[in-house]
Design a protein around this nucleic acid. Structure first.
Lengths: 234, 234
DNA sequence: GTACTTGTTGACATACTGCCAATAGTGCTT
DNA sequence: AAGCACTATTGGCAGTATGTCAACAAGTAC
């Protein structure tokens, strides 16, 4: 298996048909040769090409489970050779993890605007804006937590990181950011609450078993009891 | 692209050595030929063989993510030809789903014993027994909720079914089983709580960021506020 | 126009899955 | 005990997906 002579007969392959399965998702700034008479190979700046492939992969991974999306599918969707996907993202898994990382960022949750008011008011406002942000961005973020078993360290780390980020913002909104006693426990409880919030939002937006008002009441009352009872008990 | 001839030289492969990677997990009742001089093929009753393969698959799927466990690995762990795995479970996915289904059953949570006492007492006892059952069975059940995106209908259905089951027991324990108004909403809220309970238990048992007492306080206080405030508001 | 840089391609080697005919344990019959 | 039927079990094949890499060519500088 050492240095075996690679037989290479490029020109003999059956299909120079160049059917060029057209790119379905193009990057904003890129003009993909309009008439069909353009150059066979469109040579883009690495950033643009990478972003284009990423966009296609994101769409495909949102529709179908990981293993049902082949690298060939992604390449075809981007109108590009399969090898290019590996060139930019190493392997299929790397591309997938990058998509998940982007999708797992908490939708803004503009905390900056609510430092005033009583605790109950801040809780209410936080829940309100959380639901608001979710309603705008649609359910792509919510679809995350439903995977199976089989601990995947990389994937888990990404999700935990995103969760910690949202917890940090939530602490800030609750005015608990400056605490020092039992920091770790407080954050743990907030992570737990984050799961409830995600699940509650899912019942409302995805499964539609709760009205928005009911979801709001559920999320705010539980957050209230956690902040007022469970956390002080630490 | 039709039937391109993949050059294949199977019979020339190096090892008919019959190294017989020994079965690592055996079924209780099965005596696997002790000396090494036993028959090359151990012929078992279908149920036993099936259970043995299942046990190996369960162990492997608990350690590594789905795609990192090949059917060859499972077969090797069971000391069996790879084809036999497909023979018993159809395909790798079927085996995986069966493992998930078993692992996702809620650990007993013996509800039968606590119909007496006030609501607060029942809540406290339920949480207590939930944590108790989890502590005994170890973290295999907890590892479930951490998967990625990519909605898999079958997998999701299994998890939802298990969740509904646990919700039903929880409703029974809370004395809410007989309700008729807003059944769907009550169940939805209980599903949301189930996510919180799972997450809280994970912080305690897996990540060890909460003490058992803290987890207990968190789970019971949130359950209390849901049953007493959010549900009556429906 | 020519040379150079590097984005892009296609093929190869490998791995894994589902499938199936052939093989060989195991119990039953004679 | 020998033969036989049943079927659990095996090994190999076909198809497909993946990662890698040398060659190709689009665009630019000269």
């Amino acid at each position: 298996m050492a240095a075996l002579a690679l037989r290479r007969d490029h020109a003999v392959n059956a299909a120079p048909v160049r059917l060029r399965t057209d790119p379905e998702t193009e990057v904003p700034g890129v003009e993909l040769s309009g008439g069909g008479t353009g150059p066979r190979r469109q040579r883009l700046a690495p950033d643009q090409r990478r972003q284009q492939i990423f966009a296609c992969a994101q769409r495909l991974f949102n529709d179908r489970p990981y293993e049902d999306v082949s690298a060939t599918d992604i390449a075809a969707a981007a109108g590009v050779a399969r090898g290019l996907v590996n060139h930019y993202f190493g392997n299929k898994r790397g591309l997938y993890l990058e998509v998940v990382r982007l999708n797992s960022t908490v939708p803004e949750m503009a905390v900056a605007g609510l430092p005033e008011g009583s605790l109950d008011q801040r809780i209410d406002a936080s829940v309100h804006w959380f639901l608001e942000a979710l309603e705008r961005t649609g359910g792509t973020w919510l679809a995350l937590g439903s995977g199976g078993m089989g601990r995947d360290p990389d994937l888990e780390r990404i999700l935990v990181e995103a969760e910690n980020d949202s917890v940090e913002r939530l602490l800030e909104a609750m005015g608990l950011a400056g605490r020092h006693t039992g920091q770790e426990e407080v954050r743990a409880m907030m992570r737990v609450y984050a799961q409830l919030a995600r699940s509650g939002a899912r019942e409302w937006l995805l499964r539609k078993t709760l009205t928005r008002a009911q979801a709001h009441a559920l999320l705010s009352s539980t957050l209230r009891v956690i902040v007022k009872e469970a956390i002080p008990a630490i």
